[in-house]
């Protein structure tokens, strides 16, 4: 239980998807102009993460690994299989959102199908693949069962949402400031994210 909690908190603050690994930057920069849309996208990304990472975990350990049901080492197929799972589940989420919440569907627009190529989702699956081999007794990052993978996915999703909502809030205020012309838009956004990442670095000394 303790390991479960520390994995969760660690993936929100210390191993934050945006500030520590720069994953999901494209939609992070594109959708962070308005807090409401940013929040909606954050929820959608968290949901897709919580579904795909455990599915990929089970595929990796039960099917692709050498001691899985097929009995042969198929780990070289993991890239293709992971991206297929992600694309399939994103399609499913899109259909569900369209059916039950047409207003959110309209607000997210093109960015909903684009979750499939969001690096944060694929990145979480690949980090999970790396962490399977770690020893849970010595490392708080280890993922040794399916519950750990759910905690990791939920934490990463919430961390990503935290990052995009706070950047959107800053950018809403920044619209009124006087920025040098060549630096406007993308340049100043990068520098802002850099300063935010510096602030998040103070969590890296945290021992949980």
């Amino acid at each position: 239980m303790e390991h479960f909690l520390s994995l969760f908190v660690r993936s929100i603050f210390v191993d934050n998807m945006i500030f520590a690994f720069f994953l999901g930057m494209c939609s992070y920069l594109a959708v962070s102009k308005n807090v409401k849309t940013a929040f909606g996208l954050g929820i959608a990304v968290t949901f897709v993460l919580v579904v795909t990472v455990p599915v990929d975990y089970l595929l990796q350990t039960k099917v692709l690994a050498e001691d899985g049901i097929l009995g042969i080492d198929l780990t070289y197929l993991s890239f293709i299989l992971f991206i297929a799972v992600i694309a399939g589940i994103t399609q499913l989420v899109e259909m569900v959102v369209e059916r039950f919440s047409p207003s959110l569907y309209a607000a997210l627009g093109i960015f909903l199908p684009l979750i499939a190529v969001n690096c944060a989702i694929m990145g979480a699956s690949l980090f999970m693949q790396q962490r399977i081999s770690m020893d849970p007794a010595t490392s708080t990052q280890a993922i040794s069962n399916v519950w750990d993978s759910i905690a990791y996915a939920l934490g990463s999703g919430i961390g990503w949402m935290l990052a995009i909502v706070s950047l959107a809030a800053i950018r809403e205020k920044m619209a009124y400031t006087n920025v040098p012309k060549p630096l406007q838009g993308l340049g100043i956004t990068f520098i802002t994210v850099g300063l935010m990442a510096m602030a998040f670095m103070c969590f890296s000394g945290l021992s949980i």
């Binding site: 500030f19 040098p180 520098i191």
Partner: peptide
């Protein structure tokens, strides 16, 4: 540190 990568890239774009 990762933070400086963002700031440097911002400067490159500038």
């Amino acid at each position: 540190m990762p933070a400086m990568a963002l700031i440097l890239l911002g400067c490159v774009i500038w």
